[in-house]
Nucleic acid binder design. Structure first.
Lengths: 201, 201, 201, 201
DNA sequence: AATGAATGAGGATTCATTCAT
DNA sequence: AATGAATGAATCCTCATTCAT
């Protein structure tokens, strides 16, 4: 197995543990090795330290997710279709229990201080990821302006906040209002979409 | 010093470390003891374990904050005044670098899984706190309905989301848009207030 | 037990292992702890690392030996008596199997590079020890000049070498010529003494 | 490359690392392999273990040195010329920073216990080497008797010690008295030569 | 014969917790 | 009640050695 592929293989093992274990600092190198069916020492052939491995694994995951979002955007689809697709993507992450992604995405808002050692290792790629993220958001915004959903392109802060709010809508619903108190899948997506529209008009 | 007072004294030490240290799992019992000017062993006279101490300290902090919010609410003030005051309170926390509070508040949205061991210990009091929080939010909402800012009392999810979004507005601005790209203090509070109004109309 | 006393207690344990084990790098912290009847962790209450402990232990041993030599020197005894006493001291070390001391003493001649990491840690005190050692040697030399055993005080190098040679005489004999090939205890001391006299005349 | 030649090639790599690294126990098999431009696994095609490799490398080096000494001895040269040549050889080793050789030579005096594991592996060849060494020394001694520099052939211990002392003279000077405090190259060789003569008369 | 990826035994170090004073 | 010395379980990481290619 080529090196890069092997690393990705180890990332997957780490990520599944990250999702299971609910406390990054409790993850053991040995657990990762076992999950990946390799020897403990082998991990160190590919990574300098446990923290580096975890930082890289999270970066890998985030990159993949953003790529997925970017690829799913299609100019020939309407703005609303594209926006809805993005929200669906968030929802599917939440349902798949890939809570970690959202933990780290939300970290970029307020909790990013929680794992400084790992954050420090991620910093460079993290900034790049944030840029990708912004680029993608902007593409969506531009589309919405183009179609006249939003009259005039608002300042950066305003559209960034509008999208974040949209996503928060989906997240809160999924986390706290499932079942009888909540809305249907369709309704919540609609509500999140409207959030964007309302906030920018 | 009576027991309860001593515990609070230790909470303060723990909290200041939590704010400084940027990684909960890196905080040592000895650091807390030193900060509080007591012996390491003394900590165990008051708490069963480090994790319990931290869980209690965070609960203590959150309780205090919510109390502060509740106390600052005054029926004789207008809805907008009250709402603005709450947002100011959030802002002052962000400025005071009490990032941890916000980390934990935002944890209640999406990141709460990150410290399961602590969360488990906090669970009971955390649920209680969430209820207090909701009660306070609802009081605000009711006021807004009473004053006609919002036509009709919307469903729980809708107003909870509207307030969360308002707060998110302040948080994002503080974290990413300070300085020349951002709005003035006054403007951002106004924007956050409008978010509430827009989303519920 | 006061801290210093406890440290010395641990030194003794380490030194007995150093003498037994014949390879510094093979000594485990656990072995030292066991020998001293204390917990592994306790060692780290007194020392920052294994290497520091070993460096300090060796320094302690050398210091003690040099002190012993210095104390055994008495101005009212003749030069020859004093010199012989020093040689006896060397011999008794060799017989007690405290080979390590001699290993380290001889390290100062030619092998000092062998344990750089430990040497680095010892450096400061090692230099001090060498000075003590020189001071003691010089006292002896002065005595020999005073008594006319040596006509005129020779240059530093010459007397340092003469004493080293004397000691080498005893060491070589003890190590390789014991038994029927060798000389009696008395004879070898005499020979070593004569070495000093011959080399400085 | 024939097996024996390849082994010697690996010896050279190991020896250069031994000279560089200052701590035998810190040398890694991988370092040796890299230095020799071969694969780590290849080392194990030629040696059973790292320690064996090191033991053999040192033996190889010592053998070569003794051979060098023996070859440089020429019956047609005077005793003093031959003796001086040997001392020069020691000096050149010291200058070339081949301290390891001297470390191991001095180990044969007092420090040999320091690396028992390696010493054990070397034992057989080491004894053989010591015999070669003795043979060479004796040849020199005989020459000195033959020329009348020494009246009568002294007992083994006496001449062995006299030569060792001579060498110690050069070593101490090189290690501690270089520069302004010390003697010139020529002077120190003369002094070392005189040591031999004095001690045996 | 040569390789280097994989391994896991081994050991240093940390730190929450205990307990004798 | 308060302490901090003592503890050892827990875990990261290293590196000699193996073995399939």
């Amino acid at each position: 197995m080529p090196t890069e592929e092997k690393k990705e293989f180890i990332y997957e093992a780490a990520l599944s543990l990250i999702d299971e274990s609910d406390d990054l600092s409790k993850i053991k190198v040995m657990d990762i090795a076992q999950k990946a069916n390799i020897g403990k020492g082998t991990v160190y052939e590919y990574f300098n330290s446990k923290e580096q491995l975890i930082a890289e694994a999270i970066t890998y995951m985030l990159k993949r997710w953003i790529n997925h979002l970017e690829e799913s955007f299609a100019d020939e689809r309407s703005f609303k279709e594209n926006y809805t697709l993005m929200l669906e993507s968030v929802l599917s992450l939440l349902e798949k229990k890939h809570r970690t992604i959202l933990g780290f995405i939300s970290m970029s808002e307020s909790g990013s201080h929680l794992y400084k050692s790992i954050n420090t290792l991620m910093q460079e790629s993290f900034e790049e990821l944030q840029k990708s993220n912004l680029r993608f958001y902007e593409k969506i915004v531009d589309k919405s302006v183009e179609e006249g959903v939003v009259k005039e392109k608002p300042p950066l802060f305003d559209w960034y906040f509008a999208i974040s709010s949209s996503i928060l809508c989906v997240i809160i619903h999924e986390k706290h209002f499932e079942g009888d108190v909540g809305y249907s899948h369709k309704q919540i997506i609609e509500k999140a979409y409207n959030t964007y529209v309302k906030l920018l008009s």
